[in-house]
Design a protein around this nucleic acid. Sequence first.
DNA 1: CGCGATTTGTGCACCTCTTCACAAGCGCCT
DNA 2: AGGCGCTTGTGAAGAGGTGCACAAATCGCG
Lengths: 256, 256
Amino acid sequence: MSQHRHPGAPGSAGAVPALPDLPEATVARLPEYLRALHNLADAGHETVSSEGLAAAAGVNSAKLRKDLSHLGSYGTRGVGYDVALLIEQIESVLGLTQRRAVALVGVGNLGHALAGYDGFASRGFRIAALFDADPARVGEEINGLVVQHVDELPRVAAEESIAIGVIATPAAAAQPVADQLVAVGVTSILNFAPCVLSVPEGVDVRKVDLAIELQILSFHEHRKASLTALPATGGSALTALPGGLAANDSQEAIGT
Amino acid sequence: MSQHRHPGAPGSAGAVPALPDLPEATVARLPEYLRALHNLADAGHETVSSEGLAAAAGVNSAKLRKDLSHLGSYGTRGVGYDVALLIEQIESVLGLTQRRAVALVGVGNLGHALAGYDGFASRGFRIAALFDADPARVGEEINGLVVQHVDELPRVAAEESIAIGVIATPAAAAQPVADQLVAVGVTSILNFAPCVLSVPEGVDVRKVDLAIELQILSFHEHRKASLTALPATGGSALTALPGGLAANDSQEAIGT
DNA sequence: CGCGATTTGTGCACCTCTTCACAAGCGCCT
DNA sequence: AGGCGCTTGTGAAGAGGTGCACAAATCGCG
């Protein structure tokens, strides 16, 4: 994904809540905890144990405790974590206290859906501008926003203080678009195009490739099929799939 | 544990002999290699070095070589890898020799886009059926497929030999849908709903949460901003941040 | 006021993944 | 034939992540 090296010594803790360099794996899980916490808060819970939160987030409880300990979170032994406080802490660490402006480039099939995805707005982001290179698409209004030509990017980026760029163009157009985003100062890019982006140091790129996810699933499907075909010494026939779920297979692990 | 095996005829991929248990990290990268290889093949390359392929896939060359060695791949020292052969090998390992049928449940905003996403078809998958629980959406035709009611799932799953289920419903509906998919024998699920799915052992779930990706980017953006705002501690000459970039001086007002 | 029940925070061992560095192998050129 | 340059495949070291198990801390209660 993104290559990170954290130079220097972050030891100096001023009056500012020092931003500890969290393990990347922890950072990737914090949003999941946050979502679970919001659910718990909506359900009226004021505190939650690591066990309960871990279950809601689908992780191991020890892992969760270690993750939270990394950001110096305050739980209470014998009680658990204060839900509201923990939400505040995680949102602060993730930088969600300010609503970041997102520019979406490429309003095709997928981009159209992303533009209308309300999950962004509800979780701290504001889609501030839509762009496309196709003049036929410029001017179209989606969700209250008018699609602009990608050449307008420099002006709009400055006006709207774009913090994150989302690329939903065809693969061939992705690299030029990324270059343009970088040129106007965007240092975080979410790329849906199936290609590798080359960006200067200091720019973070995360990639989401829907077909890759399916291919990974395909591998496991393939493997499972070849396992049932193999002479598994267990003996019990795994024929009936819907009815009996043979919990005998302890080797199945869903890794992510 | 025996992972070095010589298949008889690499040219014909009939019944796959033995599936070596690849590291999960390797499996996740194989699709990326595959995409890069297809690009290279289209560009007319017949062979490629690990260095070249690694660059095209955006990874370290040593990592790539180790990944390929895991699946017993045949490169030629001094020359590189045969592009066509490698494509065949990877597709065989990923189980892409057969085109798998995918059922998509939830034809809302995102699901609509997924139904029309041609990246699935071009990479070995066939969207075989669309479902929704909303009667108002049933009957709609998308990309040549008619949306059916989710209650039709058992019948259609059997008819179409559904191998993979994609959930693009709201979070509240995701778990029941997953249960239904599992009940009809689906053992691989790609979940776009922002929630944790609980499935029996032996069922693989992969999750894609678009907002989480943005939140991870937000964290890095937040960190970068707080780093530039901090006065550089003396002596650290290696903090060579990109010089050519316009420094985005958005000062984070970190509350006390 | 002390005790037991409960839950956090963490040291430690294990495991997976990454990266370096280099020997072995291959083709080409002289 | 022999040497030379290039590339693969891999051993080994290191880095990072995971999960167990337990001490420390806190609350409620008798």
